[in-house]
Design a protein around this nucleic acid. Structure first.
Lengths: 343, 343
DNA sequence: CTGAAAGCGCTAACAG
DNA sequence: CTGTTAGCGCTTTCAG
């Protein structure tokens, strides 16, 4: 019933050469093989439909040619875009990429990490920030230690408690610049809709906002710091609470910790009868493709972030030195959702 | 520099037993091992921080404990939700899931398929429909043949040209029922915004719509079949073209081939000054989580679809018989975006 | 109940 | 240039 696929032994036999020779041509070894024999082997392999068993190859060579990325949420276009960049580079290097969806659950993250360790993944990319849970970080670090000791590479693409090389978007400056731009447009009462409080990126963006406010001599009104959750629903809730403010206390602009929240705010606001940007300006952070539909946002070069990270990983695997931190600049892109304030 | 992790040999030595015995306890073999020795081995393994090398294990046992799902677009919440279901079941069975993002490109799909074949994936799930490209289907079938011959399982979660077991949502009935419901609400001029013409699901939904129209004695107006693309932008374009119709020709309801399109239509329509559902009803297909924000839609039990598919795959791997086709019912969920027509 | 040994498919010394 | 052979780490007969 189960027909075994041909192994290199069969190829060697059919070509009338030794398995060593067959292996040398199939693995593109730099070892010299005469053009004639090479052809014989290639022919035999072709006829047999031979494909090297990656498992055996990896076991022998101690390199699985497998890298993995841990993402908080597969469905989040933010991660999806990063992954595009990672996969591009991985493919160029002949690597297979595994995307591991942790759902931001420490247990899942650990399970994946262990599986990756056991499958001897050559590289691990933490695409999101770290999960702050008591004891969790330590367990993660333990596994990281194991895998790096045996030669694997590990990097992060966000603020992380792990002591591994990292490439990150400049979230702080991005948020500061965007805030400054809103102020330049005449806005003084600017609300900030936060992300999950345990996410470092979200907090850094908040810091950027607050810093800019202070820099411009504006006070930080706690009522204008509204809770969001990096998702549509959170944005909608924020919209509701903003619309219920008194005319004097209501902000003229809402800066959201990420684009999805901004869309939630826009949808909510519009549903409640407000017009964007005529009545109120809204902007986000992240540069999701969807933002092109008219959302002013701080763009993170997501694809590039993924590429840069993967590149860093491969230099690491090459035993070369890499800087511990690399920061990618963000860009403010103004689309229809913000306007200058004319009172 | 590179410190090798402990192998089963080390465990055996430290426990003072043979590798065979060590293996038997580490692999939870049904083979009898005295409780005393078992403890010794477990203790040694614990102290060493031993973890079995999955590569070696897979090579030896001819089972990689790896399954993979090919999805058209990682970022699409549709696939993301299906994957949740798949992963749940896979984890329960101790399997690792690889999500392969084909970007709907035949070349990428083939590359992944080959990689999966070479890594000896035990199962492959085609989460989306087939890519109709000349020659492509045949190449895919060739690989499918290779992997099934060596004992792997393959299934699809959508209409597909492949002759493998499949579990699918009842797209036809869903579309037919939704259309019937719109008619019941008093709508007669109902537009349908299509999906990509080469996607079978999209066409099946269109068929359902047309069937229902005919069943209710309504004519099918080609002008009311508007081109969409399963994405926001396509929906927006459709909204524009619908809003430009004359008052008599304009539909009172728009049924979109998927939820994203419906959101695009809503956004576009609202931006052009129309109110949903007061001026025009809009509904979608797919049951994305985001639809809960107020979109009437035909819900597909996505998570359940993933679970059912994975379950089917594992029964297949167990050498048990499985039905070739399983159809999951869809449900109409009415939210705020549709209303009965009062003229 | 325990151990010795073969071998999964491949690569890389080492010898010719 | 080609071939022989020893493992990578594990499971699984086959003997005790």
């Amino acid at each position: 019933m189960v027909k075994q696929p041909p192994s290199i032994v069969h190829v060697a036999e059919r070509a009338g050469v030794s398995i060593a020779t067959a292996s040398r041509v199939m693995s593109n070894s730099s070892y010299p093989v005469s053009p004639a024999t090479r052809q014989k082997v290639l022919k035999a392999a072709g006829e047999l439909g031979y494909a090297p068993n990656s498992l055996a190859r990896s076991l022998r060579s101690q390199r699985s040619k497998l890298i993995a990325a841990l993402v908080g949420d597969n469905a989040d276009p933010y991660f999806a875009e990063i992954m595009r960049g990672v996969e591009e580079v991985a493919n160029e290097h002949g690597y297979l990429t595994i995307v591991c969806n942790t759902d931001r659950s420490p247990i899942k993250e650990l399970n994946y990490l262990r599986a990756l360790r056991d499958y001897r993944a050559d590289g691990i990319i933490f695409a999101g920030g770290g999960l702050n849970e008591p004891g969790h970080t330590q367990r993660v670090e333990e596994i990281i230690k194991e895998v790096t000791e045996r030669g694997a590479g590990v990097i992060t693409l966000a603020q992380h408690t792990l002591h591994v090389p990292s490439v990150q978007a400049d979230n702080f400056s991005g948020a500061r610049d965007m805030t400054a731009r809103l102020i330049e447009l005449g806005h003084h009462r600017i609300a900030f809709v936060t992300g999950p409080s345990n996410l470092t990126v979200a907090n850094v963006r908040l810091q950027g906002y607050m810093t800019s406010m202070i820099e411009h001599g504006l006070s930080i009104d706690p009522n204008l710091i509204v809770a969001g959750n990096f998702d549509l629903a959170g944005g909608e809730r924020a919209a509701r609470s903003i619309s219920q403010m008194t005319d004097e206390s209501r902000p003229s602009a809402v800066f959201c910790a990420n684009d999805e929240t901004a869309f939630g705010v826009m949808l909510g606001l519009q549903r409640l009868g407000w017009r964007v940007p005529e009545d109120i300006s809204v902007c986000g952070f992240g540069g999701l493709p969807m933002a092109q539909m008219g959302l002013t946002s701080v763009e993170i070069p997501l694809r590039h972030l993924g590429r840069t990270g993967a590149l860093k990983l491969f230099t690491l695997l090459n035993q070369e030195e890499v800087p511990m931190l690399e920061v990618l600049p963000t860009t403010i892109v103004e689309r229809g959702s913000t306007a200058s304030l004319r009172s």
